[in-house]
């Protein structure tokens, strides 16, 4: 298989205007991934599937990842003059990173027997811009997996033929795989609550104002 850099160059040539970025992976697995921009994602995916040298005809795994708002602290060594002496001082910079939801695709080629190529797509934020383009028209195997990501993470896939909840029931409100998910207050009366159940009943009564 061509290296990720070569694939990136060929993709940029094939789909003009596409913005791509290689995201390095520091673990020993060495599985680096390619971040696509949402506007050109489907065209890029079609190229990856149909290109004679790549032929990624098989999308093995599709999943979501939730990245809430965080502060990234990075230490940079800076030379500073303190009391007339030049010293190296650690300067800690904190940058707030807004949260987003991520779709991860693992592609393999059954025809050429190579892979994996890992694609990533990112939403604008976690609240109102949660749309991603659907890859179901390109690879049918995404059908149920994208429904699962919609159900558990709340990513809305544009172009999906049948986007419904798959594991949770239709009336369910929240998205359980998000990191900030809190379980609903589904306490049922028990005559002698104890331990966890007692805590739960106290919380329930406090919420209802009957404590």
């Amino acid at each position: 298989m061509e290296s990720l850099e070569q694939i990136k160059i060929r993709l940029e040539a094939a789909v003009p205007g596409a913005k791509l970025e290689i995201l390095p992976n520091e673990s020993p697995s060495g599985q680096h991934s390619l971040l696509l921009d949402n506007a050109h994602a489907v065209a890029l995916a079609r190229f990856l599937r149909d290109d004679a040298q790549l032929r990624f005809d098989y999308c093995s795994n599709m999943t979501g990842v939730d990245w809430p708002d965080t502060e990234i602290t990075s230490k940079v060594k800076v030379k500073k003059v303190i009391d007339g002496v030049e010293k190296e001082v650690d300067e800690v910079t904190k940058t707030a990173r807004p949260g987003f939801l991520e779709g991860v695709y693992h592609l393999y080629s059954m025809a050429m027997k190579h892979g994996p190529l890992i694609l990533r797509l990112r939403t604008g934020n976690r609240k109102d811009q949660v749309q991603l383009p659907s890859f179901t028209p390109v690879w049918r195997s995404c059908e149920f997996q994208e429904r699962e990501v919609y159900d558990l993470f709340g990513v809305v896939f544009d172009g999906h033929p049948d986007l419904r909840r798959i594991l949770m029931w239709d009336e369910f409100r929240d998205h359980p795989m998000r990191k900030d998910y809190s379980e609903p207050d589904d306490y049922e009366y028990e005559p002698t609550p104890h331990d966890d159940v007692l805590e739960k009943s106290k919380r329930h009564q406090a919420a209802k104002g009957t404590l």
């Binding site: 992976n25 520091e26 673990s27 020993p28 599985q31 093995s60 795994n61 999943t63 693992h106």
Partner: peptide, 21 residues
């Protein structure tokens, strides 16, 4: 505690490709 990073491992299970990400 593994280092920061990610991995996808898969085997040929009796039912098909079983992978963990």
């Amino acid at each position: 505690r593994p280092k920061v990073g990610e991995a996808y491992g898969r085997i040929e299970g009796p039912k098909g490709e079983l992978g963990f990400y």
